[in-house]
């Protein structure tokens, strides 16, 4: 298996098609992490992420001929399947995060509502801030959540994300911009909700 790890994805896939279990194992271990994390960030559920990861590699195993190397790398292809699987599960109501979460927010311009306040967000790297931010990401509309998961959390380039999501680089840029504005708004709202109510004025 040590030699197999030096092989490129295409070669491993060819060996997998020929029935080489070790090649499939190397391929799986190479790509399962990003696929799993993407599914988890999109769904907010580890069990859904398990299912999606399994479905993605099952699809690769059953229909390896569907992968076209000329249209992008194997990682992009696997992300594409994972994305479809997450969407399918959303449509079937298997996720606790609604597919159109925050859709109303998306209609309004989030930038305007955020920009009017100068109250700083505070340190989001602390535990409480991270928890709030995680919830905010999970509640984003799907098309914004995708770009945040790929570009911010997997640190993917705009070009790679555009390839996976099947849209222009400019679309990725604008979605990311709006997604960030929405996240700022949601984090701020969550902080406001946690702030203790002011004491009633004594009459």
């Amino acid at each position: 298996m040590t030699d197999l790890q030096t092989l490129a994805d295409d070669e491993l896939l060819r060996l997998t098609q020929a029935g080489d279990e070790n090649a499939f194992t190397v391929l799986y271990r190479r790509h399962q992490g990003p696929v799993y994390r993407f599914a988890q960030r999109m769904s907010g559920s580890p069990s859904i992420a398990d299912d999606v990861t399994q479905e993605v590699f099952l699809a690769l195993m059953c229909e390896p001929g569907r992968y076209d190397a000329s249209r992008g790398g194997l990682a992009s292809y696997l992300y594409g399947i994972a994305r479809n699987q997450v969407r399918r599960q959303l449509e079937h109501g298997k996720l606790h995060v609604p597919a159109d979460a925050g859709a109303d927010d998306a209609e309004a311009d989030p930038i305007e509502s955020v920009a009017v306040t100068t109250d700083p967000l505070g340190d989001l790297t602390l535990q409480e801030g991270l928890s709030t931010l995680r919830q905010a990401v999970t509640s984003l509309p799907l098309h914004y959540r995708e770009v945040v998961a790929l570009c911010d959390l997997e640190e993917m380039s705009y070009e790679s994300a555009a390839l996976i999501l099947g849209c222009a680089v400019g679309t990725i840029r604008s979605r990311l911009h709006r997604a960030h504005a929405l996240l700022v708004q949601k984090v701020r709202e969550a902080r406001e909700a946690r702030r203790p109510a002011p004491a009633a004025t004594a009459l």
């Binding site: 700083p120 967000l121 505070g122 989001l124 995680r134 911010d152 959390l153 960030h180 700022v184 984090v187």
Partner: peptide, 16 residues
Amino acid sequence: DERALLAGLKALADGT
């Protein structure tokens, strides 16, 4: 805000 958000997202990415 954007810098604070990106720092938070980076911490989230690092944690997972």
